[in-house]
């Protein structure tokens, strides 16, 4: 029997909030995530776009392919623009709305991090989504702080591959004590759907880190985009989990519950995941070992935290 992707069927086939005709590259994973996210969030959603691929390909003026209100904003400002929009909707008395930032890794990890940190610390009622394709793809594949070690980009060319590990944005966000932090991947659409549904119900700062394959930048066949993202999770390079704030009965006793929401039946070594992509073609064995170790460490850490959560629940 098949693992059924649990997204309510009526949602799947009923009116789409995203239309075809966008100029995204073949196999770009971001529209898959957007499509499913909007199904979970519904039409009372405002999307805030900083500069990123999506803001360009979803439609240049005067066209848009998203059937929800969209606000464009300067690259580094998306989180706080969303804070402003959320404040305005609140003061206007608009209930049951979601203000969602849809930002790339540059707009999150790098240039966007100040505004993001501010909004997170204030616990503004926004949902910040980073669709992470691990480099500046819109400008033509330059390294960002989300680029993994060993990856080729146009600014980390052969002979100067990125030697630093990817920035741990998830830990950074968690350090802000936010209401909800999750990772998700369109390779696991029902998990992604459920997380957006959950985020919709939570007041305060929500952060969802999406892995988003970029066939052009990752040097992969567009058809393999979802398959390789699945491998990212199977290899634990991109574990899928969530951390939910539980408000304590007594002030000061808030806890953060960890749950690993996708535990793949099949495990693959990190090297398989890396080998599947042209951008890692020049990587040294040393780097592969390092990444494997990082992945193992992160997984162990997650298991520990999850188990600690479970113990605390008992």
């Amino acid at each position: 029997m098949q693992r059924k992707i649990a997204i309510p069927r009526e949602l799947l086939v009923d009116e789409e909030l995203m239309l075809p005709g966008m100029t995204s590259c073949q196999g770009c994973a971001a529209p898959i995530s957007m499509k499913i996210a909007l199904k979970a969030l519904g039409n009372r959603t405002v999307i805030v776009f900083p500069a990123c691929c999506f803001c360009v390909f979803q439609g240049g003026y005067p066209y848009t392919n998203l059937k929800v209100p969209v606000i464009h904003c300067p690259f580094e400002t998306s989180a706080v623009v969303a804070s402003g929009a959320a404040a305005a909707l609140d003061v206007r008395g608009e209930k049951d709305t979601t203000v969602m930032v849809w930002a790339g890794d540059g707009g999150t990890f790098d240039i966007g991090i100040q505004a993001l940190s501010g909004a997170a610390e204030r616990n503004d009622n926004i949902l910040f989504v980073c669709y992470d394709n691990e480099a500046y793809m819109n400008t033509g594949i330059q390294r960002s702080s989300a680029t993994p070690m060993g990856a080729w980009t146009t600014t980390t060319p052969a002979g100067a591959l990125k030697s630093e590990p990817k920035k741990d944005i998830e830990q950074i966000m968690l350090a802000h004590h936010i209401a909800y932090m999750a990772t998700a991947s369109p390779a696991y659409p029902d998990d992604l759907y459920r997380k957006f549904q959950k985020a919709r119900q939570i007041t305060g700062m929500k952060f969802i880190h999406l892995l988003s394959a970029c066939p052009s930048g990752w040097r992969i066949d567009p058809a393999d985009s979802v398959r390789i993202m699945r491998m990212a999770t199977q290899s634990r390079v991109f574990p899928i989990y969530e951390v939910t704030k539980q408000t304590g009965a007594v002030p000061g006793e808030d806890t953060w519950e960890y749950d690993i929401t996708v535990i793949p039946e099949k495990e693959v070594p990190v090297s398989d995941y890396l080998k599947s992509q042209g951008r890692f073609r020049l990587m040294t064995d040393d780097m592969v070992v390092k990444i494997q170790k990082q992945a193992d460490r992160k997984w162990r850490d997650l298991i520990e935290k999850r188990d600690a959560t479970r113990l605390a629940c008992v």
Partner: peptide, 21 residues
């Protein structure tokens, strides 16, 4: 085909049209 909806879910270009009804 078992009408499992995978194609419908994954199409990035919203180009799979459901006709199962």
């Amino acid at each position: 085909c078992t009408e499992c909806d995978n194609c419908l879910i994954f199409c990035p270009d919203v180009s799979i049209l459901d006709q199962t009804r």
